[in-house]
Design a protein around this nucleic acid. Structure first.
Length: 607
RNA sequence: GGAGGCGUGGUGUAGCGGUUAGCAUAUCGGCCUGUCAAGCCGAAGGUCGCGGGUUCAAAUCCCGUCGUCUCCGCCA
């Protein structure tokens, strides 16, 4: 070993010891006589002090070598740990009470000047540059911390589940394409002309087959692949804690995961959990109150329904929305009644992104008059003149608005209303700074619909996936009222991010056949896609269910990163490219020939 | 597939129709024994992403294009 200690671990305990350190020059302060070098390794930073040339503390030449060192040079330093003289401690450094007086300094490797700052904590470097030089970006303290946190989280999960009799089992990466769900990444087969593997979107079918195999308790830290467009919280390849159990019901899995998340949080986060046991909301409740199926419970601002109040209003926008099967719902902007018109216009544009045609607003500037009415003097609104007095009173009452508050209203289809107000709720919280970031707000969302109607395909589709079981009492209405059937499915949500979801599966091939029939899949299609699974279920499949947690998102939340890219060592850009290795890239004609592949004219080249 | 933001010395940015393209920091040289965002003096460093257009004149306005970020669609 070139080193006896890690830089960041030295303390007053080590005073007097002769140590060998090796690491990178974080910063150098050359006073001509004295030279200070902040030496950095993964553990942290320690100050190396090189005394003037000829000092008894050092070998000949050490000062000269130290004066040649530059940022990011790789150094080995031998010297004695010394308590810093009084008044020269650095409280900003964990090792700030001591310093290492250099006896011998050696440059193990010089370094080019890095293309961006590594040593200053600022996070303001162009991300494309960080990604191109990711190996330098990862030297930064923040990134080392994120990778360490990720390791600790995964290690805890492995231990927790192993202690509960789970087996970690690997499943294939080269697998089979299924047209359902996300777009697959496909891999051409050399040995089988014109045939392809697909990378798994998740190990879903394999973990169910492991249950048929009698494994009973399985987990895997699994890489998953989906060829869909990216977002800040979505990468084409991502990591899930994939888990499946036999002989359980939804509550068992939820209890297991909830305990794991609570213990994990205690281990890796200084923040308290807002509420335990985790609140449980039905999907219907979540949509009604928050407009999303992954509510951020760190703040209030519930949506309220005004459909009944304005169903017969003179105001056509409201009346027609209700008459057409839509909804009129609102949200409160606390102390927003005096917002500039420009702010309101910005929020109107904001909800239009989600399909809303407009945003009605009523500023409540004063309390009601003696008869309980909110008259013109108490309101600031572009629509109040179209509304009857009792409608206005009803709206204010339903909103719970106090003087000074602003009521914002959307009238549209239930889907558009929910989406626009659900997102507006987050926007208001950001604008008014209402998000309590000192807590972690977990919750469960349950009782999802089993099926949703796809207007484009004119058929029913599985909301979760086609192996999800309906609630026992709902099987009877599968064919008669598919849209009303609720699933034994559950999502776990943290601070408004869906961090996981799962379900109890169908283990009975008769019920599975009925579901496929409702999904409009004919026998041949089912056999081609899922035949192996259905056949397996005929050999004594245990009742089973599971869950998958998004590791990248979890780590990002604990790390307070805004993008999962910051907790992935080598992530891809929003266009799915890797800027460091330059992927994807063309392959040679020889490679294509072996794969029996001919390329069509590229779209770009055709122009 | 669509919408929007950004692109100026290595890095971060100012400039938004006429500037010698400014500042900070990094880099290089000199001085310096207690700094920790060290300091002081000096130097070097720019095809203003790329292409076209408008104009007497473009970093600046317009169009296209490339890269990147965010969002919508998409993500069982």
């Amino acid at each position: 070993m070139l080193k006896t200690h890690q830089c960041g671990q030295l303390s007053l305990q080590n005073v007097g010891e002769e140590v060998s350190l090796a690491g990178w020059v974080n910063r150098r302060r050359d006073h001509g006589g004295l030279i200070f070098i902040d030496l950095r390794d993964r553990s942290g930073i320690v100050q190396v002090t090189v005394e003037p040339e000829g000092s008894a503390s050092q070998e000949e030449g050490a000062h000269e070598i130290a004066s040649q060192a530059r940022n990011e040079y790789v150094l080995q330093v031998n010297g004695v740990v010394r308590e810093r003289p009084e008044g020269f401690e650095n409280p900003n450094l964990t090792t700030g009470a001591i310093e290492v007086i250099a006896r011998h300094v050696e440059i193990l490797n010089p370094a080019k000047t890095p293309p961006f700052y590594i040593s200053n904590g600022a996070d303001d470097v162009d991300e494309a540059l960080r990604l191109k030089y990711r190996y330098l970006d990862l030297r930064r303290t923040r990134m080392v911390q994120n990778l360490t946190l990720r390791h600790n989280i995964v290690r805890f999960i492995r231990e927790y589940l192993s202690n509960r009799d789970f087996l970690e089992i690997e499943t294939p990466i080269l697998l089979k394409s299924t047209p359902e769900g996300a777009r697959d990444f496909v891999v051409p087969s050399r040995l089988h002309e014109h045939e392809f593997y697909a990378l798994p979107q998740s190990p879903q079918q394999l973990k169910q087959l492991l249950m048929v195999a009698g494994i009973e308790r399985y987990f895997q830290i699994a890489r998953c692949f989906r060829d869909e467009d990216l977002r800040a919280d979505r990468q084409p390849e991502f990591t899930q804690l994939d888990l499946e159990m036999s002989f359980v019901d939804a509550q068992d899995i939820r209890a297991l995961i909830e305990e794991m998340l609570i213990k994990l949080t205690q281990l890796v986060s200084p923040k308290p959990i807002q509420q335990t046991p985790f609140p449980v909301l039905s999907y219907a409740e979540a949509m009604d109150k928050y407009g999303v199926d992954r509510p951020d419970l760190r703040f209030g601002l519930p949506l309220f329904t005004l459909s009944e109040v304005v169903a017969n209003s003179e105001f056509g926008v409201f009346r027609n929305a209700v008459a057409g099967g839509g909804q009129v719902k609102g949200i409160l902007y606390p102390q927003g009644a005096s917002l500039a018109r420009r702010d309101i216009d910005e929020m109107t544009d904001f909800v239009k992104r989600f399909g809303a045609k407009g945003l009605a607003w009523i500023g409540v500037t004063a309390g009601p008059d003696g008869e309980g009415n909110y008259g013109p003097d108490a309101l600031r609104s572009q629509i109040s003149k179209f509304l009857a007095q009792d409608e206005i009173n009803g709206i204010v009452q339903a909103s719970g608005a106090q003087a000074g508050d602003l009521i914002l209203i959307v009238a549209d289809s239930p889907a558009v209303t929910a989406q626009s107000l659900g997102n507006l709720r987050l926007e208001i919280a950001r604008r008014a700074d209402l998000i309590d970031t000192s807590q972690l707000a977990f919750c469960w969302v349950t009782d999802f619909p089993l099926l949703e109607y796809n207007d484009d395909l004119k058929r029913w589709q599985a909301v979760h996936h086609p192996f999800t079981s309906a609630r026992a009492e709902d099987w009877a209405s599968l064919e008669s009222a598919p849209g009303d059937v609720l699933a034994k499915a559950y999502d776990v949500v943290l601070n408004g991010w869906e961090i996981g979801g799962g379900s109890i599966r169908i283990h009975n091939s008769e019920l599975q056949d009925r579901l496929f029939a409702v999904l409009g899949l004919n026998h041949d299609e089912v056999q081609a896609q899922f035949g192996h699974l259905l056949e397996a279920f005929q050999y004594g499949a245990p009742p089973h269910g599971g869950i998958a947690l998004g590791i990248d998102r979890m780590v990002a939340l604990y790390a307070e990163a805004t993008s999962i890219r910051d907790v992935i060592a080598f992530p891809k850009t929003a266009a799915g490219t890797d800027l460091m290795v330059n992927a994807p890239s063309p392959v040679t004609t020889e490679q294509l020939d072996e794969l029996h592949i001919a390329l069509k004219q590229a779209k770009k080249a055709a122009k």
